[in-house]
Amino acid sequence: MLKIDKLTAKIGDRKILDKFDLEIQDGEIHAIMGPNGTGKSTLSKIIMGSNDYDIKNGSIIFNGEDITNLEVDERSRKGIFLSMQSPISVEGVTNREFLRTALNARSNEPLGLFDFIKKTEQNIKDLDIKNDILTQNINDGSSGGERKKNEVLQIKVLEPSFIILDEIDSGLDVDSLKIVCDNLNKYKEEHPKTSILIITHYSRLLDYIKPDFVHKMMDGRIVETGDVSLAYEIDKSGYGEIDA
């Protein structure tokens, strides 16, 4: 599915990723944990195609294709989805216009309103989102939890094959976290080949979405890989006490 090979990225003179390697197969769930400022969110944005960073070396291969130089929208249409840590609000653009435009960008046939409503209605109910979300501007006046639910709604509507969850648990209360994770698990069941990369500080998220692999990231590279027990160990001891 995804292979990142010796990727080095900078912002200004500062190296953010340092010969970063990661390989994720179809259907696998990986989690990356690491202290603040170690490059986790940068990694997610670079995979998505942000041009805020200079890629100095290395490559990103997605389903056998080198996407290192592809634009953000092209990567998305190939199946990559980044659920953002702090989803922004967009003045004057409703969720309905946004989602329909995004769906139509993936298809040669414009999606009719009836089909669009059918596609979104049940997902809105499943996520326990307010009924009027489609006529609201994107994340306008929404709480942190509502914004995260909107990210998951977008996943369920756009049906990506590779999902990056950048701190999906931040800003969520216990009930909302359960709803979000139940929906993501259901999506994964219905789309078994979909791969997920979870970026998180806390192992509590991994109680809900079980990863196949957990990576510890320090100073722009992965320094240790294990199963979910590595996450519990990090939670217990912090990042400093585990040997790299």
Binding site: M48, G49, S50, E71, V72, D73, S76, R77, F81, L82, M84, P87, I88, V90, V93, F98, L99, T101, A102, A105, R106, I138, Q154, L158
Partner: peptide
């Protein structure tokens, strides 16, 4: 970036 990250052309 947000809009384009959902597949919408610039």
């Amino acid at each position: 970036f947000y809009l384009m990250s959902r597949g919408i052309k610039k």
